[in-house]
Design a protein around this nucleic acid. Structure first.
Lengths: 188, 188
DNA sequence: CCAGGATTGTACCGATCGGTACAAATGCAA
DNA sequence: TTGCATTTGTACCGATCGGTACAATCCTGG
């Protein structure tokens, strides 16, 4: 069996960046080809399903990262305060203080949502659920915990929109600090 | 002079809906033509600058609506509590409880941002500024007022993202109620 | 070293993109 | 009614879209 010059898995992050920078519709195959250094032949060899399969692979990759780096630690909640602070630190790094957009969020806003609607919903449900579980571990009631978790996740998404629109990383960090305060103010 | 069958101004809201539903890149001229009932000839007669001028006209329309219905009443602030509650009611109606996206926000997230970056920034600066002024009228310090205003506007944008992704208008309304509480809790 | 399958670049496909040209249709002033 | 500028539908433009075909190339098992 022949060996691939580039593993499929090491192409996916490059794809993700193209989708982020040019949008799902705007990421043409020629752009993708240029960004990855792979010809159409290779791309369709790795992803026979074309652009949709590429995007699907990117979403898989994102899911995996959030699962291990964000959701799972939140549920472990050891201790809740540290888990939530770690989450916000990782989120700040991941979204480059607002310089990087949330691909899942923008796909959810767009018209190309339908094939991925279920997974997009699950991503946010998972995030809200994990954070809510962490808050419950910290002693909050299920109702209050859910509300706080929703508030925080929506706040992060809004911080991305606002900081991107204003071109200000400072806005993003300021919002994240606020969210941290709100999350921590009633626990421990 | 000949009269137009449709005034340019009455086409703009239809354009806005096409851009919202299909995205800026996805709104092809054929879709626009179908949605407005106007042929290419008429469209380029109304908007000689093509798609970019259409989008610019849509942004003008949005600006005008927010200026008169949201920003200006907030600055009037009579009284602050009512002004903010009115804003949230109008915002809920305008965004159809999350069923409608914020075109300015999504353009700001996308790659087609550049020609409109300045106006997008101004839109959010104006919103945050007006709300901040209202909060100051209510007695908050400039620093706190600005922080609260940013929090609320980001919260609204995040509520759109989250509710759209989850397909839940209830999430949007719940978030809006929370934002209302936060805005009002320390005044009067 | 060689056979044979995996991988690759490239040419090409029909469709559609945004935009232009222009002649027919239209509506108003005189 | 007639003259004329405006408005409109339609045909067409080159470019690019996502995707396919396929021959050349590469790599590895034997």
């Amino acid at each position: 069996m022949a060996r691939a010059f580039a593993e499929r898995s090491e192409v996916v992050p490059l794809l993700a960046e193209v989708f982020r920078e040019h949008g799902v519709e705007g990421a043409s195959l020629s752009l993708i080809s240029k960004a990855t250094g792979l010809g159409k032949g290779s791309l369709y060899n790795f992803f026979p399903g074309g652009k949709e399969e590429m995007l699907s692979a990117v979403l898989d990759d994102i899911d995996r990262w959030f699962e291990t780096s964000v959701f799972s630690p939140l549920e472990r909640a050891t201790p809740p305060k540290d888990a939530m602070q770690d989450m916000l630190r990782d989120v700040d790094a991941y979204f480059r203080s607002g310089g990087r957009i949330c691909l899942v969020g923008v796909i959810g806003l767009g018209a190309a949502r339908e094939p991925f609607a279920k997974r997009i919903a699950q991503y946010f449900e998972r995030w809200v659920g994990a954070l809510s579980a962490c808050l419950q571990t910290a002693g909050l009631s299920p109702t209050v915990a859910l509300s706080r978790a929703e508030e925080a996740v929506a706040g992060i998404q809004g911080a991305i929109v606002l900081s991107k629109a204003l071109g200000s990383a400072e806005v993003f960090r300021r919002r994240l600090r606020q969210i941290e305060m709100h999350l921590l103010e009633t626990i421990v």
